[in-house]
Every structure is written in C-alpha cells, then in structure tokens.
C-alpha cells in the first residue's frame, strides 16, 4: 500500500513536472518567435528555401514571386514608419489622405524593386549575427551577412521597432546603404519644389512606367 502510494506520488510529480516543462518550452518558443531577430531569421529562412527549391520562382514566375512577397515578407514591414522617415519633417504637413497615398505608392515601388532583386538570388549563404539588445529595448538593429566566396561579405541590417503588432522592420541597410536615407533626399527635394502632391505624382508616375515596362 505504501509502495503504491509512493508510486502514485512519483507519477503525479512526473506528470506535473512534464506539464511544467512543456508549458515552459511553449513559452520559450513563443518568445523565440516574437524576438525581432528570430522573426527576420525565420522569414528569410523560409523565403530562401522556397527560392532555392521552387522551379517556377527560379524561372522568373512574377505572379508567384509577388504572392510570396505579399504573404511572407510584407507583413514584417512597417510601411507607415518607413514612408514617414523617408519624407522627413514634411510628413507632418501631409493630410491623412496624402499620407495614405504616399505609403501606398512607396510600398508598390519597394515591392517591385524587391521582387526583381530577389529573383537574382542564387546560392549565397546568409548568416545572422547575435542580437545585442536589452529586453526593454523598443528599437533594435538585426544584423546579417551574405557570404560569397571571393568578395567581402555584404551586410544586410534591419532596423526594427516594437509596436502593438509586434516587431516590424522600418529600414533595410545593405552594405551600409540605408533604403530610407537613399530615398530621403529625392523626397525632400520634390516636396520642396512641388509639394506633397508633387511627390505622390512622382511616385505614381514611376510605378506606372515600371508597370508598362513589365507588361511589354
């Protein structure tokens, strides 16, 4: 009887311990998925595997590539913040409608550029560097490198900010060249010369030209 009781206690304890462990593990998983570097690492891992294995994508199937970008990559970006940063101080002068249009057009342009960049990806190795941040940080830099034999590795860094929706990317810095900064001067000059509407027009004209060229 005593032995039986003992066994039951041990079993209960084991069960409890097991349960605790599994919840702990799940909690760990959760935080790993939510961490900024883990998000980028997971998404780029998935995308690169697809690019490597999918024959359609390699052959340049634009629709499929577009879907891949739309479902996997775009949700990770904070296009509002990206556009606001690129426009700079004049962002405050823009009306809600103008802001909406700017974000929409800038987003279209970036997606198009990104898709033609992705399709030229081949067999480079992507490596992530350890994230240096405190748990309280709301703004981090996730650093990675593309390694190719015979050239200096090219760094690809992601500036990420924490919002209610979780961590999202608001700038990509390739080899030290920030996407946002590179557009900023063009944006600022255009707004200075032709106002916010001028910039909206500039972006939509560019997108229309690209669309026409793609159709040919």
């Amino acid at each position: 009887m005593n032995a039986f009781k003992c066994l039951r206690t041990v079993m209960a304890a084991t069960l409890l311990a097991g349960l605790c462990l599994s919840t702990a593990a799940r909690a760990d998983d959760q935080s790993a998925v939510d961490a900024p570097d883990a998000i980028v690492q997971k998404v780029s891992g998935e995308v690169l595997t697809l690019l490597r294995n999918d024959k359609d994508l390699q052959a340049g199937n634009t629709q499929k590539l577009h879907d891949l970008i739309e479902t996997k990559i775009l949700p990770q970006f904070d296009f509002n913040r990206m556009t606001a940063l690129a426009v700079g101080v004049d962002w405050r002068k823009a009306s809600a409608e103008q802001k909406k249009q700017l974000v929409e057009q800038f987003r279209t342009l970036l997606v198009r550029t990104y898709s033609s960049g992705l399709s030229s990806y081949r067999d480079q190795v992507l490596e992530f560097k350890p994230l240096r941040s405190k748990p309280t940080d709301t703004d981090v830099l996730v650093r990675s490198e593309i390694k190719q034999p015979g050239t200096q590795p090219i760094s690809i860094d992601y500036r990420m900010g924490k919002s209610d929706a979780g961590w999202r990317i608001y700038d990509v810095i390739i080899g030290g060249v920030s996407l946002v900064t590179t557009y900023r001067d063009t944006f600022v000059q255009e707004v200075r010369q032709n106002g916010i509407d001028g910039l909206v027009k500039m972006l939509s004209d560019k997108n229309r030209t690209l669309e026409q060229a793609a159709r040919k």
Partner: peptide
C-alpha cells in the same frame, strides 16, 4: 544586373547613386 535594379528603384538616378555612394563609402 545591379544597374537594371537601379533603373527600377531610383526616382532620380543621379540622387539615388549619389546618396548610396556617400553612405557606402562612409560605411
């Protein structure tokens, strides 16, 4: 391939190249 990408991305190629070059050299 890079120059094709540049044509797609840049609104004003002159400024795009200038600002990218300046950042790259600094880096």
């Amino acid at each position: 391939q890079t120059t094709n990408l540049l044509d797609d991305a840049a609104l004003d190629r002159y400024r795009f190249v200038r600002d990218a070059y300046t950042q790259r050299r600094r880096n």
